[in-house]
Design a protein around this nucleic acid. Structure first.
Lengths: 143, 143
DNA sequence: AAGTTAGTTTGTAATATTTACAATTTAGAA
DNA sequence: TTCTAAATTGTAAATATTACAAACTAACTT
C-alpha cells in the first residue's frame, strides 16, 4: 500500500506541483486494481473531490503518462485504460468479460530479454516487451 | 498477395454474403500493411466504392472480427486498428511515430507455448499469447 | 507572511469515434 | 424470376477526447 506521502513524493519527484486532484487521482489509481478508464476514475475521484472537471482527469492522466508515473493500457475491446503499476509486468485479459489483471513473471521476463538480446530484429530496436495473455478467468477468482 | 477469388472464398467460407463492400474492405485490409483505422479504411474504400457509408465500415469490420477473418489491434496511443493477418504474430510498435508492424517468430512462439504449458497461472487459462514489442524503427526501414 | 508567477484546474464547446435504428436495397436460395 | 433474410445506407445520438480561455493556486521569492 502506498501512503499519501509516497504518492506526494512520486508526483514531486516528477517535477510536478502537488495538487489535491493529482494526489487523489494517483492514489485512486494505485488503489483500484482493475485498470480503470478515465471515466471510471472521474466517477471515483469526484466522490472525494466534488466539482472535479473531466478535463482535469484527462490532463492529469496525460501528464502522469508523460512523466512515467502511470502507463496506458489498451485492450482489443474498448477505451483507454490506465495502470499505476509501472514495474514491468504483463496482462491477463478476457475479451468476453473485458476483465484485465496484472501478471508478474520475472522468470518469463528473463527468458524473453535473453531471447531478444541474442536475436536482433532488423530495422527495430526493442526497448520494452509486453505480453497480453488472452484467455478466461476461472469463475472462482473474482478479485 | 491474395486474389479477389481468395478474398471471396474467405468471406463465403465464413458464412457471409458476398457484397462489393465486404470484398473491397477485406481486400484493402490485406493490401494495407499499416493496420489502418476504421476511418482510414473508409477513406480508401470510398475511392473504390463512392457513396459508401461509414456505418458499413464499422458493421463490416465487426462482422469480420466476429467471424475471425480479421483482428482488432490497439496501441497505447489512439483508436482501434484492424489487421487482416490472422496467422499468429506479434507487433512491433513505436509510440513516438505511432507506427506498427507485424512480427512473425515461430521460434519464439514455441518457447512461449512451451513455457505456458509447463507453468499454469492460477485462476486463468491462456488461449492466446500476444507480444507488443515497444521500441524504435531505425530510419532506413520505412516499409 | 505577502506577493508573484508559472503551472494547474475548470467549464464550455468542439471534435472525433462509434453505435442505434429505421428505411432501402441486394445477394443468393427457391 | 421471385422471395426473403441479410446487408447497406443515412441520420441522429451516444460516447470519448481535446481545445482553449478564464479563474485559481502551489510554491518560490522577498
Amino acid at each position: 500500500m502506498e501512503s499519501t506521502q509516497d504518492i506526494v513524493k512520486k508526483i514531486s519527484d516528477a517535477g510536478l506541483k502537488i495538487t489535491p486532484q493529482r494526489v487523489t487521482v494517483l492514489q485512486m489509481l494505485c488503489k483500484l486494481k482493475n485498470h480503470p478508464t478515465a471515466d471510471e476514475l472521474f466517477a471515483e475521484v469526484s466522490q472525494i473531490l466534488p466539482g472535479l472537471s473531466p478535463t482535469t482527469i484527462y490532463n492529469t492522466l496525460d501528464t502522469f503518462v508523460e512523466k512515467g508515473l502511470i502507463k496506458r493500457v489498451k485492450t482489443d475491446a474498448d477505451v483507454m485504460r490506465y495502470d499505476a503499476i509501472t514495474d514491468h509486468h504483463h496482462h491477463l485479459y478476457c475479451a468476453v468479460s473485458d476483465r484485465m489483471e496484472d501478471y508478474f513473471d520475472p522468470e518469463l521476463d528473463r527468458i524473453l530479454s535473453d531471447y531478444f538480446n541474442k536475436k536482433q530484429i532488423s530495422g527495430f530496436s526493442v526497448s520494452d516487451i509486453r505480453l497480453q495473455l488472452m484467455g478466461d478467468f476461472n469463475e472462482n477468482n473474482k478479485n
